[in-house]
Structure formats: C-alpha cells, structure tokens
Amino acid sequence: MAGNIWIVAEAWRGQVSEITFELLALGREVAGQAGVPLEAVLLGSNARELAQKLGAADTVLYADNAALADPVPENAAAALAQLIKERQPAAVLVPLTNLSVDVGVVLAAQLNVPFLNYCKNLKADGGNLTATCVLYGGKMEATVTASAKPAIIGILPGARSVEQGRSDKAAAITDVAVTLAAPKVHFKKYLDPETADVDITQKDFLVAVGRGIQTKDNLELAEDLAASLGGAVCGSRPVIDQGWLGLSRQVGKSGMLVKPKLYVMLGISGAPEHVEGMKSSQCIIAVNTDAAAPIFNVAHYGVVGDALEVAPALTEKIKARKG
C-alpha cells in the first residue's frame, strides 16, 4: 500500500483521550496488514509529554502551535491538511467523538474526499481498505471499500480495547511545523456541568437500581459503583416511589429517557415501562437473581446473581484498574 496509516490523537484539556489508544490498536493491525508504518498525529501546544504516551505508533508526528491549544476544528483540519499534502498517508483514522468528528469532516471537505463514517472495523487487504460500518442505528452493517486517497475514516468508540493501544515503548517523536491562518470560528470557553443538579440524561455512565436493591441503605453500594465509573445513580419507579431517589432520577415511561454509554442495572426486572426509557443505551449490563427476568432479553450482558455482592466487587475491580 502506498502511504502510511495515520491515526489522529485526541488530546483534550491536558490529557490524551482513551479513544486515541483504541485507534492506535486498530491502526496497528491495519498498518501490519498493509505492511506500512503506523503514525500518530498529535496536534497541540506544549503537549510534548502527551506525545510520549503514544508509543504504540511507529512515529508520532507532533505539531506544536499555539493556535492548536483550544478545540478549534478548523485549525486542526488545516494543520492536518498541510501534513497530509506533505506526507501523503494512505488513510487517516479519526475518533468519532464530538470533539474530533468535526476535525474529520472539515478535513475531508477541504481535501474534497469522502469521510467514511461509523466505522467499527477496518482491514487492509491488497492495497485496499475495507471497513465495516454500522448503519441505521445499528440495524445494518455495511462492508465498504474506500479508494479515496487519503481515506478519512471516522472510527467508533470501542473498536478496540484501550489496553491494546497502550505501550511502554518510548515514542519516536517527529516535530512537524504547520502554519495556521486566523480561524473564522473563535473558541471562547469550556462550560463545565453544574454538579449540584445531576441530570441523568447527560451522564455517560449510569447505575440503575430497582427493587432488587431491597433497602435504602444498599443504595450506597450503587453510589460507590457510580462514583468509581464517574457516573450517577438512577432508578426504576418503585425505588423513586419509596423516596430513596428523587423524581429526576427516574428512568422510563413516566421519567427520563436516557442513552448513556453504559447502563448497569442492579435488581431491575425489565418491565416495558422501564425499558422504554433506557433501551437505547450503548451497553447494558443487568444483574438479577432471577435468570428468567425479562431484562436479560434487553441487556447486552447479564449476570444471574445478587446485586448486593456483585456491585461492591465490581467497584473494587474498577477502582483497582483505574488506580
């Protein structure tokens, strides 16, 4: 294959986003198949120490420019466009996150090439890239070839594991220079969520408790788990009815509609009224003592067991892993 495989690293507020490592893992595979080097592009300002974390790539192209400090997609796209013109990669993998997707689409527009979207898997095969893309809200999967050069490919979160993309290897950093014009769009500031009032519809991680949690005191187990995940606790109606949680935490037909990345259910049977409010969650894990509970027809992963035992065990493991 002519040209290297690139991944665009996502660095945000002084940290490398985890999806970057997923892309590195995927890119590694694809580069291996194509027999070309894998290069990671990191755009930033005074972010060299972040570049060091990208050892899984053969080379890290690091562009340091004051204009790249803030999340301005226009600048990032312009920088990438320059680098691409200079170095002619075969494919550029972009994270499909709210932060990076704009970089990818603006870049594709500037280069006048398509932006291959919703990609969950990618293969290189005889000079061609074949992607598996998730369409129609997950109802179909398409196998797609992209012959554009370079192919700009948006990769869904979760394509590979973060672990696979981490490496202790010292990154080989190549400094690259980009010149940037003043952007049209001006970044003003970050708006952090107000912590006082938990809006469960805005959370990526939710731990939902049902009557299986049994007493109000056990709610603490769920709170701990949610805290370890960085999410919030919500519940089924009976739990809200008991007054264990406020009405704003109720998920379902008569409550909130949520679509978090992860929805952990502790002792919820899976009544249609509840399912209505959470069925679009990206990953659903249900813990229930009853193997025949209808929730297991909805959840992606199920555990037949006591939520009061599983929840604390999980909290410990997560804490241990996160360090």
Binding site: L247, Q250, K253, S254, G255
Partner: peptide, 17 residues
C-alpha cells in the same frame, strides 16, 4: 368503582411530586 388512574391519557404522563 374507583378509577385505576390510566384514563384520559394519564398513562402517558410523567409522575408528579
């Protein structure tokens, strides 16, 4: 007879405090 509470569209309404 005492209503179950579902009629008149109430079955689709949010719970209130």
């Amino acid at each position: 007879s005492y209503c179950c509470g579902a009629g008149g569209g109430r079955i689709w309404m949010e719970d209130v405090e």
